[in-house]
């Protein structure tokens, strides 16, 4: 019965839209939108290509607090153009992080939370999107010197392309079972490697390699969480309270390069062989 009760009272995070996600994780009533949809700062490139633009370009950026600590939060709307980042959305994300950096330089300990639901750069905006993602990455590295930059990949879109590198730069990364994290998206790999090697429609196979559970088992993320608003918020509270002293993963590149050098790429990689590689290293 208690299970049924828990089920009836659970609140899925994955099912929420970007703004709802941001509001659900911040202290109640603390969300202050920066460039809300009514500012109508939308992509100037999509309509010229016959694509309907969204008023906030699919990126919600806000200031607020979590457990009373100041944060900037950015949430990408995965349902708009696959969460792709163009010039405007990318600039909003980078700008939010730069605000956090500025706060810290002025003695305000603002942390950053990034809700990543993105296929990476928006192909329709090509280099402008890429440039924006580079700015996002630089800003993450700057802010994480002062305060945690916590990435959350909840799914169902996952986090791919240049933004998967951004996720890798975060000081902390949280995932759910629904999440996927990888440099190239499944369809891109299928197109390059062929259907025999990588069938993007084989969902169990895709999640076994890039899903949240696998990434957690390989130690590539910091927490593997249930799809439940309160659980994710609790983890954010704890992480902000006790960020720990671990070196960011991107500073541990020597260890990862060594793993890569030892990996035998001749046989087809599967979930077990990849886990064995990472876990052998941790033991």
């Amino acid at each position: 019965m208690s299970d049924l009760n828990a089920l009836l009272h659970s609140r899925s995070f994955v099912e929420l839209g970007a703004r709802q996600r941001a509001a659900a994780l911040l202290d109640q009533g603390s969300l202050r939108d920066l460039l809300d949809p009514f500012a109508r700062v939308k992509s100037p490139w999509l309509e010229a290509q016959g694509i309907v633009a969204q008023a906030d370009d699919g990126v919600v950026v806000a200031k607020g607090s979590i457990g009373g600590r100041p944060v900037v939060i950015a949430a990408i709307e995965g349902n708009f153009q696959g969460g792709s980042l163009g010039e405007v959305g990318g600039a909003k994300l980078a700008g939010a992080l730069e605000l956090a950096a500025e706060d810290n330089r002025n003695g305000i300990p603002t942390a950053a939370v990034l809700l990543l639901e993105t296929g990476g750069v928006r192909l329709q905006e090509a280099n402008l999107g890429l440039a924006a993602i580079a700015e996002v990455q630089a800003a993450i590295v700057e802010v994480r010197q002062y305060q945690p930059v916590i990435g959350v990949v909840a799914g169902p879109v996952g986090c791919f392309g240049g933004m998967s590198i951004a996720a890798g730069l975060c000081s902390h990364l949280l995932v759910t079972r629904e999440a996927r994290l990888g440099l190239n998206g499944p369809q891109v790999i299928e197109q390059e490697a062929g259907l025999d090697e990588y069938d993007s429609r084989d969902r169990p196979f895709i999640w076994s390699l890039t899903g949240g559970e696998q990434r957690a088992a390989c130690g590539l993320v910091d927490a593997y969480l249930a799809d439940e608003v309160s659980v994710i918020r609790e983890c954010l509270l704890q992480t902000l309270e006790q960020p720990g002293e671990a070196l960011p993963r991107s500073r541990q590149y020597a260890r990862f390069l060594d793993l890569l050098a030892r990996f035998d790429a001749a046989p087809q990689a599967d979930a077990a062989s990849v886990r064995a590689l990472y876990q052998g290293d941790q033991a």
Binding site: G17, D36, F38, Q54, N79, F80
Partner: peptide
């Protein structure tokens, strides 16, 4: 004012 939905 109000905003609902998504261009999805």
């Amino acid at each position: 004012r109000a905003q609902v939905g998504c261009v999805g």
